[in-house]
């Protein structure tokens, strides 16, 4: 279906934890025994400015250092970036898109960018709401990573949880993990419905 290296691009705004998301993703992949590389877009952006972070996951050592211009997965932390930043530039024809939004895909008016993507490769859900539910703060990272595990099958939910717990020990980590778990379930259900088939990729 694709080459062995996965390239992920995460878009958000300064302060939303874009870099942390990439880091957690890499850490989860590492825990799965994969090779991973995560790096920010190296900006001097302040709170609220559009920021980007990158992650690569592969079965072998990753040598390249170029920025991700042809992503296999695009994660959008902040829906206000839609139609402002070239979010889908270079997206692989069979790629994945994950959007943190309270709106449905139809309401986001982005079908022109996503028409080639297979069923179940695009997912919009309110990660922020899940963050509020479990953390009492609008933190979308945990849910987005849970959802990432669900739609891509690249990393295990258990590894996402371990990565979160390692980065945020204690109660914050626990709440984040719970949010990630729920997102995983919600998204799994959603894409199962989309595809009309049963999804078996993550039996943990």
């Amino acid at each position: 279906m694709r080459n062995t290296m996965w390239q992920i691009r995460i878009h958000g705004r300064g302060g939303q934890g874009v870099v942390t998301a990439a880091e957690l993703l890499a850490m989860a992949a590492f825990m799965d025994g994969k090779y991973a590389q995560a790096f920010p877009s190296f900006g001097s952006e302040r709170m609220g400015a559009p920021v980007v972070a990158f992650c690569r996951v592969a079965e072998g050592a990753i040598r390249t250092r170029e920025t991700v211009t042809r992503p296999d997965v695009v994660i959008i932390q902040d829906p206000t970036l839609l139609h402002q930043v070239d979010l889908f530039g270079g997206l692989a024809p069979l790629g994945f898109v994950l959007i943190n939004s309270t709106q449905t895909l139809d309401a986001l008016h982005i079908e022109e960018f996503l028409s080639t993507l297979p069923l179940g490769h695009v997912c919009a859900f309110s990660a922020t709401d899940l963050g509020l539910k479990y953390l009492k703060r609008p933190i979308a990272n945990g849910p987005l990573l849970g959802a990432f595990a669900a739609i891509t099958g690249l990393i295990r939910l258990a590894s996402v949880e371990s990565a979160i717990q390692q980065k945020f020990p204690g109660a914050v980590g626990e709440a984040n993990r719970a949010a990630a778990r729920e997102a995983f379930d919600v998204v799994t259900t959603s894409i199962t419905e989309q595809r009309g088939i049963v999804h078996h990729a993550h039996a943990d």
Binding site: V19, A22, A26, F30, A36, F39, P40, F42, R65
Partner: peptide, 12 residues
Amino acid sequence: MDGYVLTHAYEP
């Protein structure tokens, strides 16, 4: 070491 490219990169 390359600034950001290495200093800010997470890798094994």
